[in-house]
Design a protein around this nucleic acid. Structure first.
Lengths: 380, 380
DNA sequence: TGCCAGCTCTAAAACGATTCAGATTCTCCG
DNA sequence: CGGAGAATCTGAATCGTTTTAGAGCTGGCA
């Protein structure tokens, strides 16, 4: 039989509904609905007739929206970003996380809806979160104690917070049974990275920070701002660096100095710009602690631009160990990104199953590669 | 005023509806609805009372699902992948595409729903596409003439096909006014890559192919299979390689030989495995044409494992020019990935606006970096 | 024959909103 | 003072399903 051109829905009418199929056959709508959802509720022959009629009428099956409304379940989980997706995805680690998360949810027939705050438009940044038809929400990045976070919680849906402090630790918020938390040992990983540099003898260390807070400018970090970091991973990693330096400073007191700068966004370009500016201003720096591999990669570029050899002139450490970093020979702090995605998915399923929340904290560890080396005396 | 602990939805009752808010105030449901959606339809004072009552009752605003049903609009666009998302996201180019697509749609208050076919589970792979509540669908990767594609089209929604052949060119399908197409000059880009290698004098060229068809095995490509490539970009790029070699063969007839192998998935690991196998089996190969940067990166790893210097012993060319490739010094075929995302978004908006489809085809070009060099006689 | 069980199928009530077409009341002006 | 027109609010229909409770019928078994 020759293949016929695939016919788009119906001839052209408005939109066929279950009711019309039922009417065409002279059966009740319940029967048609059952033909699709509960085949055991009607005779095989009638079911076949229903499906056949539906086909000729161009009915594509029950409307998912109406179905969801009636059933009280959408089969969709929202993932909330507080940054424009354009930048959120610039980080391979984010992509990897999302991939494994999606994978974990797929087993339960759940799909992911990406919810990002509109960049700079005048649209309400909370509208997506407020108006999303979802069965649950996952907060991937949000400033602590933010309006965004409150909007999420006010939905009263099963919620998983990724890399967030405990709700109880945020002023004005209270822990909730339906809001689980999955995170990593941010500070510990940062501490390992800093320790590594100290052991290599570095004392003038640049720090490429992730954003400290939403919609700030980036650039050198004045001492005052360091107390008001509203992104949890940034705060924790910074704490890890600081505390290690303070502790290591016991041996060589006053010697180690951290030079902080903030990237406006977690992107290659911002990392490069930022690093370039810092290294030009403080050429005594011999090592760079970066809060993400993406930023570290920007740092490597900056070094190349300046003609500083890595690791001879400048040591660079990243954070995340994202997929491509091994190829760049980058020393970095590994975190179980895929695992994290999976655990977040599992936490969501657990919550949706009605269980109380159970928080998860995953380990990090240092991966030493070729971008770090012992300090050599500078010929300044 | 001291910040009070944020109170989760209501005390605890089931779920508050618009009707209950209306009843509590003794007004009609229409009024409450208007308080949220059409402030100009009631007095400011009443509106304030409505919102206030809603707050104390713990009503979080109109249910998005019910609202969507009534309005006939969900504010969601589905993106269809035919591969598990876990792998789809392994490609930075895919992530970049998605990011710019999301960005483009955000202007119209549209969010993205990720629809992937369940990996290997027994679940119906078409269920996500059939059952998604969306206003439009974007097909990111699908085998031509596949069931998946037909399922998408049968929804009768505005549809944008990315990197797909014209529907009319697929057996059994017909072009549709509501299905636009955005793609790149796949074959042209591939031709440039191949031409480059020919000019450098290479005659024994390995080709790392993207998947030829869904759920095949990967590995060396027998001559027969080359005719049955069901992924459009794969087919086109292969054609570009082949035709260039055939044309260039005019000068040095019979000399140039392409050794084809297929990666099971577009991932670093599969690329590496695949390249390793090929290079070990055919050590006379001096150059590698890869259909993606991810695969090329796998190729670079394989070369390193074998101790083959790049580009001295082995030239490597990628495809996409994804974000990290410059740092790997990879010669590659650039494609306007971000632009593509934006154009897809625009096409969707156009379609949703009721206009007929308008297809777009974007250019590609070769970016020569350090991973390719003139052929040196091998000391085999 | 009588009765219970098991199939099929149906009627009608949700699900939670939006919106059109009035019904009131208010305002303003000639 | 009368009436047009604006401002404000309401009733009821509708969006397209799912699902519960039960009606009719058939057949088996005592």
């Amino acid at each position: 039989m020759a293949t016929m051109p695939f016919n788009p829905p119906p001839p052209s009418s408005g939109r066929i509904t279950l009711r019309e199929v039922a009417r065409a056959l002279g059966v009740s709508v319940a029967t048609v609905s059952n033909a699709y959802n509960r085949p055991d509720q009607l005779s095989a022959s009638l079911r076949e007739r229903v499906l056949e009629t539906a086909r000729t009428l161009g009915y594509g099956g029950p409307d998912p929206l109406a179905s969801s409304l009636r059933r009280g379940r959408t089969g969709v989980i929202g993932v909330v970003f507080d940054a424009p997706l354009e930048y959120a995805f610039a980080d391979p680690a984010a992509a990897q996380f999302l991939g494994s998360l999606a994978q974990a949810l797929q087993g339960a027939s759940l799909n992911l809806l990406l919810l990002a705050s509109p960049g700079d438009g005048q649209a309400d940044p909370l509208a997506p979160v407020r108006g999303a038809s979802v069965d649950g929400l996952i907060v991937y990045s949000a400033a602590q104690n933010s309006e965004l976070l409150r909007a999420v919680l006010s939905r009263g849906l099963p919620t998983v917070l990724v890399d967030q402090p405990a709700l109880g630790d945020q002023p004005g918020l209270a822990d909730q049974d339906r809001a689980a938390r999955v995170g990593i040992d941010d500070a510990g990983g940062a501490a390992h990275a800093a320790q590594h540099l100290l052991e290599l003898g570095h004392t003038q260390i640049g720090v490429l920070c992730l954003e400290l807070g939403p919609r700030q400018g980036g650039g050198r970090v004045a001492p005052g701002r360091e107390r008001q970091v509203s992104y949890h991973p940034t705060a924790e990693r910074l704490r890890g660096y600081r505390e290690t330096v303070a502790a290591g400073g016991a041996d060589q007191p006053g010697h180690v100095r951290l030079h902080l700068t903030e990237a406006e966004r977690n992107t290659l370009n911002d990392g490069e710009t930022c690093a370039l500016e810092l290294l030009r201003a403080e050429p005594q720096i011999t090592a760079l602690l970066c809060m993400s591999d993406v930023l570290a990669c920007g740092g490597l570029r900056a070094a190349q631009t300046l003609g500083w050899a890595v690791p001879e002139r400048l040591s660079v450490i990243g954070y995340d160990d994202s997929p491509g970093s091994a190829d760049l020979n980058l020393t970095t702090v590994w975190q179980p990104t895929s695992d994290k995605g999976r655990r977040v998915g599992e936490a969501m399923l657990t919550l949706m199953g009605g269980e109380r929340r159970a928080d998860v904290r995953l380990p990090t560890r240092l991966v030493v590669r070729g971008s770090t080396a012992k300090l050599r005396r500078l010929a300044l």
